[in-house]
Amino acid sequence: MPDEPTADEFVARFLTLVPEEHRELAESNALVRRGEDDDIRAGARMGKIFALAKEFALLPPAEIERLLESPLHDIRVGAVSVMGHQYPRKRTTEERRTELYDLYLRRTDRINTWDLVDVSGHKVVGNHLLARPRDVLYELAKSDHFYERRLAMFATVMFVGRGDLDDTYRLAEILVDDPEHFVNTVVGTLLRETGKHDRPRLVAFLDRHAATMPRITLRFAIEHMDAAQRKDLMGRAKQAKTAG
């Protein structure tokens, strides 16, 4: 693989991964936005896309952005996966890491599904903010777009893994009653993960919110609790719903 691979080279390799029955569709839409369906699935296996992205981990940001413009969902999965591989590499310069972070936030319009966020939002945005101010997460948490709100919470995976829980809880306070399913699930997931580090803090949060938070959020958050705690917290939610 050359030091400066291109989006065209990535696409050429990607097309070999597409099932024969979808090959013509993928070829005609790979890097061309036609203004019609802008989230086409070509049916390539995710594992193979991730492996290809690892091979193209040196793809320059400008070429990654070309991939993000693709109407093929599979290619955009590849683009965000490339960013996730490239950012934490020891040989990646701080200048390049900043470029990747800026690109990610500038093009959230193309990283606009829950799975695209989850491929590398934590590895790029979360990693970048480990030792930096995190104000941008609170801006994202108030976005009109659910995928930006999901990103705000999902980026904190990197903080929680280090036992740094404060931003996760502050963001959860903002997002705990969010109307979007894919925000509910990530809030519940991150709350669950905080419980591995500080169970009393999780219990205290749920004591305040269990009766009113979306049930899917609560179910995710209590997954690792004992049966008695789960029953108590779900009972509060049921009572509140009945009373309402």
Rank of each mutant, 00 (worst) to 15 (best):
M1P: 12
M1K: 10
T6I: 09
A7V: 04
A7T: 01
A7K: 10
D8F: 03
L15D: 06
L17G: 06
R23E: 01
E24T: 13
N29P: 02
L31A: 08
V32Q: 11
D39T: 01
I40H: 01
G43W: 06
G43V: 08
A44E: 00
F50M: 14
F50K: 11
L52K: 02
E55M: 05
F56E: 08
L59Y: 04
E63M: 05
R66M: 09
L67Q: 04
L68N: 11
D74P: 10
I75G: 10
R76N: 09
V77M: 13
V82D: 09
M83S: 08
G84H: 06
Y87R: 00
R89Y: 05
K90N: 08
E94D: 15
E95N: 03
T98V: 04
L100A: 04
Y101P: 06
L103C: 02
R107A: 03
D109T: 07
N112V: 05
T113C: 01
T113Y: 02
L116A: 02
V119D: 06
G121I: 11
G126N: 10
R132G: 12
P133H: 13
P133C: 02
R134G: 12
V136L: 12
L151E: 09
E173C: 04
I174L: 15
D178V: 08
D178F: 08
P179I: 10
H181P: 01
V186C: 06
L190E: 15
L191R: 12
R192I: 04
E193S: 14
E193Q: 15
E193D: 15
V203D: 14
H209N: 14
A211D: 07
M213F: 09
M213P: 05
I216Q: 14
H224F: 01
A227D: 15
Q229D: 15
R230W: 09
